[in-house]
């Protein structure tokens, strides 16, 4: 076969056009955020100032961050022991778990929220009226497929049986085995799943909006309908948040094969 030294012209053209399509909207949004509200021309930091002095910005950002942490905590407590147990004792259930993990694809957020609102409209107020109750309940489900596939891969890579037996023969109980032996061994998988969950929660609009909660994404929507220049600034921030979550995921999983395909999982939940 002919060996090529440099990049082929075909590849160069395709990749430059693709890079332009992907980068131009981001650059344009950033430039837009620097336009002055009064003159519509560059350059002013007024739009950014408006955002950073808006109490709503900070309060919704805080709400969404707490929601993300709560979602991650509940997901880990719920899924890590379950996936561990399934790998250790009930390997036949893996098929059922994988099938359940595909369900959120068939029941997208817009369908899920319709069902949740109908099921829980008469639930107690501390649950139904609080984002930290109702929304987190739904977000754990949105995070489930990404957590599950990530953890499943993590557990497949370690020898659960040997680790458990070794730990037990040294006198450790179940809790100690899980916290000091199992968790450190699947840390990377758990962190990858957590970063995906973070990205999902920080961007989830459908359920929050239809259930009338104020979160960071619904704040972006509100700003977008009222003030154009600050909206550009908030959009940039949201993109930076997604970058931070995804880059952290790639950094912790540096040595893992297939780490990029994991990112494919996150998309469907938030667009």
């Amino acid at each position: 076969m002919r060996r090529r030294r440099g990049i082929s012209p075909f590849a160069a053209i395709v990749l430059v056009l693709a890079a332009a399509y992907f980068l131009i909207p981001l650059i344009a949004t950033f430039l837009f955020s620097l336009d002055s509200v009064q003159t519509g021309n560059c350059c002013s930091l007024a739009a950014w100032g408006t955002v950073f002095h808006d109490g709503m910005f900070w309060s919704t950002l805080k709400t969404s961050l707490i929601l993300a942490l709560e979602t991650i905590a509940i997901s880990l407590v719920l899924f890590v022991p379950t996936v561990y147990w399934v790998h250790l004792r009930l390997p036949r259930l893996r098929g059922l778990m994988a099938a359940l993990a595909l369900l959120p694809f068939v029941i997208p957020p817009i369908v899920l929220v319709v069902g949740l609102l109908n099921v829980y409209h008469s639930a107690p107020g501390w649950f139904y009226n609080e984002p930290y109750g109702f929304l987190v309940g739904a977000y754990v489900i949105l995070a489930f497929p990404y957590m599950y596939f990530s953890l499943d891969a993590g557990f497949r890579a370690i020898d659960v049986h040997t680790l458990t037996e070794a730990s037990h023969s040294l006198g450790a109980g179940w809790v100690r085995t899980i916290t000091t032996v199992i968790v450190p061994n699947i840390r990377v998988a758990a962190m990858s799943g957590s970063f995906l969950a973070l990205a999902i929660v920080m961007g989830e609009f459908t359920i929050a909006s239809l259930a009338s909660f104020s979160t960071f994404p619904t704040y972006i929507d509100y700003i977008e309908q009222t003030e154009a220049y600050p909206a550009a600034a908030v959009s940039c921030l949201s993109f930076a948040l997604t970058w931070a979550a995804m880059l952290s995921l790639l950094l912790v999983g540096r040595s893992r094969p297939g780490r990029f395909s994991q990112l494919a999982a996150g998309g469907a939940q938030r667009i």
């Binding site: 961007g203 979550a245 938030r270």
Partner: peptide
Amino acid sequence: TFSGVAANFGGIPLAFAFIA
């Protein structure tokens, strides 16, 4: 890497990026 981010960047901010 960029695809990983962009596939997860959607919704309201994306719509606004295109409006801008």
